[in-house]
């Protein structure tokens, strides 16, 4: 059985041998061992992941997991692969080896459960669209038809969460950078996602906007798992439960490692809207460090 079939088997909760029997092929013969299946309380399960863009290797045998309800910060230098990892998690990219599962299945089968805020807000400023219509896009699911009434309540709720209700009738192009990012968060929230993935949402944002943005995230943290990539690799918001460093280790540039954090109370509170946590790049934690006291 090939790797893809094994991935699918793991996705469906079946063993490769059971699939072989279904196919009528080589009964009982397992060419490679089955991939492990994530526990139920795991939101993101990344096992033995390898990925490359043609000649450029990005990840090699990366394994980590994120528990449901956690606020996870992904740090790393520019070009380390943060955006690539997020795209693998939301299903925009497929791993060449290993598996990425979201709530136990492949991300493409969890469209409804994932909210995504992309990195570059490089939208055409001449595109005629109002805030409310941008937020409404979050309710789409494949080519199925959703009436305006069906999504009205969800749009109202999402705009309220992201504090953009007052902006609803404004053209998207007329908003400031911070307002646009909040609108995109509202768009990601419309489908009531269980996992919210944000790619450097505070890049080029002023301090006030950044504070407001993290206030919004603090509210959302109550109801969703959050995975956020950030350009600052030394300090993260106090909201963070876990920090994952991408390509931090020069000896292992294609890796993702869990690192320790400590309170940095000596620093001003004027960013992230709260105390900050200092990332201890010198203390690497085992992948199961987050599992203590959590039921499988």
């Amino acid at each position: 059985m090939n790797q893809a079939a094994q991935n699918e088997a793991a996705t469906l909760g079946q063993t490769p041998s059971s699939l072989d029997s279904m196919d009528g092929k080589e009964h009982g013969v397992i060419v490679e061992p089955a991939l492990p299946h994530p526990p139920e309380n795991v939101a993101i399960w990344c096992h033995d992941l390898s990925f490359r863009y043609r000649e450029v290797e990005v990840f090699r045998n990366v394994t980590f997991h994120v528990h449901s309800g956690e606020f996870v910060v992904l740090t790393g230098k520019n070009g380390a692969g943060k955006s690539t990892l997020l795209k693998l998690v939301v299903g925009l990219l497929e791993p060449q080896q290993g598996q990425v599962l979201v709530f136990g299945v492949s991300p493409r089968r969890r469209i409804e459960s994932i909210g995504y805020v992309p990195q570059h807000a490089s939208f055409d400023p001449a595109f005629p669209i109002r805030v409310e219509d941008v937020v409404g896009m979050g309710r789409l699911s494949g080519l199925s038809y959703i009436s305006k009434d069906q999504k009205r309540g969800d749009i109202e709720w999402a705009m309220e969460q992201a504090e953009v209700t007052d902006l609803r009738a404004r053209p998207f192009s007329a908003l400031s950078g911070g307002q646009r990012r909040r609108v995109l968060v509202a768009r990601a929230l419309v489908g009531h996602p269980r996992l919210l993935v944000l790619d450097e949402p505070t890049a080029n944002m002023d301090i006030d906007s950044e504070n407001k943005f993290f206030e919004v995230l603090a509210r959302i943290k109550m109801g969703a798992t959050i995975l956020i990539a950030t350009h600052d690799s030394d300090f993260v918001s106090e909201l963070a439960d876990t920090v994952l460093c991408v390509g931090q280790d020069s000896e292992h540039p294609h890796s993702v490692h869990r690192h320790a954090m400590e309170k940095a109370e000596d620093l001003p509170k004027d960013i992230y809207g709260s105390n900050m946590l200092r990332v201890r790049h010198d203390i690497e934690l085992p992948d199961d460090a987050c599992c203590e006291g959590k039921d499988p």
Binding site: V90, I111, Y116, M137, L140, S141, G142
Partner: peptide
């Protein structure tokens, strides 16, 4: 408007 986001919505 946003091809990448649209792709994540299937």
């Amino acid at each position: 408007f946003d091809e990448e986001f649209a792709a994540t919505k299937g």
